[in-house]
Amino acid sequence: MVKRSLSFIHKAYIVFLKDLHVEFRSRYAVNAIFLFAITTLTAISFSIGPIRLRSEILAPLLWIILFFSSMSGLAHIFVREEEQQTADTLRLLTSPNSIFLGKWLFNIILLFSLEVLIIPVFLAMMGVQVDSPGTFLLIIFIGSIGLASVATLIAAIISQASAKGALFAVLSFPISLPVLISGIHGTQLAMDGGTFKEAISDIQILFSFSIVIVTLSLLLFEFIWRK
């Protein structure tokens, strides 16, 4: 038998692969998040009709879609473990931090794959002209990491409470507001052709916020996870 000493990161990667396999078996989170995003986008597009909106409205709409889509799907990563009663086995198998990192990575990948689909559709449906695409993508990229980090941490908390669905959005909203405020501000700047330098303060907030939340998660996750 080949014995391998698995490093911390490698274990996280294995947790990530495991979640990927489980997800592809049921496709619950993927269905929830994609269908939710598409439904919201269609609802918005229908109700607005042919009117061309300004970036002050488009940027918040985009982030509202992203936020609530995350709220519909990203909690599943921990809720599933509790519902299918696999959490205890997972607790025995590996360290809390590698579990958190694996699930964090999964949520980020899930949110990114949603964005790859939904953002081009959003831009096309709403007829948006993004004047500086590089800054736009960077803001979305870092903002999504922040959003997914908050969502993963809060998901771990609410998976152990009752009324999970309602609580998830209620608990996540105040925490992820820095991401939303800076994300909306930066996206709007990018749509109007703001340069990287003009959006730097938003990027700084988004970046530092993500770092703070991930650090905090690694410190606190053990308390949430251990029974």
């Binding site: 941490l153 608990l171 925490i175 507001l177 905090l216 949430i224």
Partner: peptide
């Protein structure tokens, strides 16, 4: 335990609101 964790998370994000924004 969970309320304590949430309280700490919320507390850490407050500087973003009070000072940065």
């Amino acid at each position: 335990k969970l309320a304590a964790v949430y309280s700490i998370i919320a507390f850490v994000t407050v500087p973003f609101f009070i000072f940065i924004i």
